[in-house]
Amino acid sequence: MLGTIISTWIAATLTIAILSFLYKDNPLYRFAEHLYVGVSAAFTVVIFWYQDVWPLLVGNFGDFLRAGNKLEAWILIVPAILGILMWTRFVPKIAWVSRIPLGFIIGIGAGLGITGTIHGLVLPQLKSTMLPLVNPAGELGFGHGVLFVIIVTVLSYVLLFRRVTRNNQSWATFWSILTGLVLYVVLINILKVSWLRTALSVIAADNLIIVIAVIATILYFYFSREHKGLFGVGSRIGIAAIMVSFGASFGYTVMARVSLLIGRCYFLINDWVLKGIVAPLRHIF
């Protein structure tokens, strides 16, 4: 109980010390920062030693010898030597020797990576991108709405608003998107024009968006040709798709950062204030 309270107080003090940087840089923050880095590094070394080096190298060596497996015991010398060779980086004259174990690691990584990436990433993702674009029994969904708005926006921009606004791109884009949204709500949701709904539902909209976005994104990263004309249009759609992806990532990132703050605040309120201060005080009085 006392140990928990003391450790909670230390953790709370260090949390507040780190958060104090938001006010301004100060020695308490510096101390907590250095302590965090030092403790993390030390802890990692301890884990490596007690979880891996000692049981897998020293422990197994003794076990194999006792069991009479001399070959398996002495072969452990090879990884031990490779590990020691890594330390030669600290001696400039023989630092090149450390390339031997590094080469070993990179070789294993590359060898495993080739099959892993092809089997586990390239082929399954290619397969999942080859999607049917027509779906006769389909129902209207969110993707259809997006597709309708995009089509109406592009058409109204090219045919109408670019001229009406005398090539003012911002206003033309604004009015085109607004037209797309209004027409979607009026024609599809309020008036429910049946032929339009049927025509839309036949298209596998989600699949179409995925296929177009994938092709357009690949076009954007093709730098051997100038991004002009039809190629330029494709590349612009590609950058739009990338931006949508970045936007989603950014949204999640904001959520993640807020979650970290919530985690620390939860600790301060629940573990420190309630369990570390209020509960002992209640116990005493």
């Binding site: 099959t115 892993g116 990436t117 089997h119 586990g120 990433l121 999640y252 993640a256 979650s259």
Partner: peptide
């Protein structure tokens, strides 16, 4: 790596719980 090695090569069924920062990259 779990998906590419254990999942794809050995058919292990995988569920991922990921930090928000990298959630979007796991949807594919």
């Amino acid at each position: 790596l779990w998906v590419q090695y254990a999942g794809a090569q050995f058919g292990l069924r995988i569920i991922l719980g990921v930090a928000g920062v990298m959630a979007t990259s796991m949807y594919p």
